[in-house]
């Protein structure tokens, strides 16, 4: 192969050691881990990192976690949900302490990323911990001087399972261009005036945008959830190429 034919070589995304700066309990099953990276080139909302754990005997495990923090922050926030029998999530939730090192590399991913300059209404649809990369988008949007219209439709089992609930509710205060809809699939308080049950086509139609507004969709959650939402959006007539998806499991972790 001649030099002219040689593919452009880009530098490897190297492993590095982050220090745990803070651990925040989000729900009974979810914590956020705030990391101080050694070096960080900056990320785009929606990207993820890989983390790598090494046991005493050399056994290693790697997993991917979406970044919840916006690009403007120099600390990186990962949000971790407990997976039954998950060796990595149980370590991160039960063993990891403030000050501990955590090996990771990133940022990774070039598709499920939001480019604010696209200047199209943003419709985010989250199932459970699928909110994480979408939160990076909302936090990034909040920091902009002239935020574009956005909508978050967030499906969780119960009110107590809503991750970032206070921050999300605060975001909508004084921001008429941000719509926030919770869908509670299992347990609703008696006085619940929001959506009960799974996200259906009607809720998607009412809570997103008109086709003419040319919205961009980001859908993240468990596989069945993403399959269901994305096919409903296509049935509603939205452009399949405007629907970006990221699926979390089920994968036995």
């Amino acid at each position: 192969m001649t030099a002219i034919d040689a593919p452009q070589l880009r530098s490897r995304i190297e492993w590095q050691i982050g220090r745990v700066q803070a651990i925040v309990a989000e729900t009974s099953r979810v914590k956020s881990i705030v990391l101080q990276p050694t070096r960080w080139p900056g990320h785009r909302p929606g990207q993820h990192v890989d983390i790598r754990l090494t046991a005493d005997g050399g056994y290693r495990a790697e997993r991917s976690y979406s970044i919840a923090s916006p690009p403007a922050e120099h600390l990186i926030t990962l949000t971790v949900e407990r997976i039954e029998d998950g060796e990595v999530s149980s370590y991160l939730l039960d063993e990891l302490q403030i000050g501990d090192p955590l090996e990771f590399r990133g940022p990774i991913g070039g598709h499920f990323i939001w480019n604010q300059a696209a200047n199209r209404p943003l419709c985010l649809v989250a199932g459970g911990s699928g909110i994480t990369p979408l939160m990076a988008m909302l936090r990034h949007r909040r920091a902009s001087r002239d935020p574009i219209p956005a909508s978050l439709i967030y499906s969780v089992r119960s009110l107590d399972d809503i991750i970032y609930r206070d921050e999300l509710d605060a975001m909508t205060d004084g921001d008429a261009d941000l719509r926030l809809v919770y869908a509670l699939t299992r347990a609703c308080p008696g006085n619940w005036s929001g959506h009960r049950g799974r996200i259906d086509q009607l809720l998607l139609a009412e809570s997103s945008f008109a086709r003419e507004e040319n919205p961009l969709f980001f859908v993240c959650g468990p596989t069945g959830f993403v399959e269901s939402i994305s096919s409903k959006l296509v049935k509603l007539g939205f452009d399949p190429l405007a629907i970006k998806t990221e699926r979390f499991g089920p994968s036995g972790e």
Binding site: L53, T54, R60, E87, G252
Partner: peptide, 29 residues
């Protein structure tokens, strides 16, 4: 960097060798 307190919950029964960084799943994500 050894992750203090991290132990494998797998590899109990002579699992096949996997490519680096991979874990076994039985469903089909």
């Amino acid at each position: 960097v050894v992750s203090r307190g991290f132990r494998s919950k797998r590899r109990t029964s002579g699992a096949a060798e996997l490519p680096p960084g991979q874990y076994l799943t039985t469903d089909f994500p």
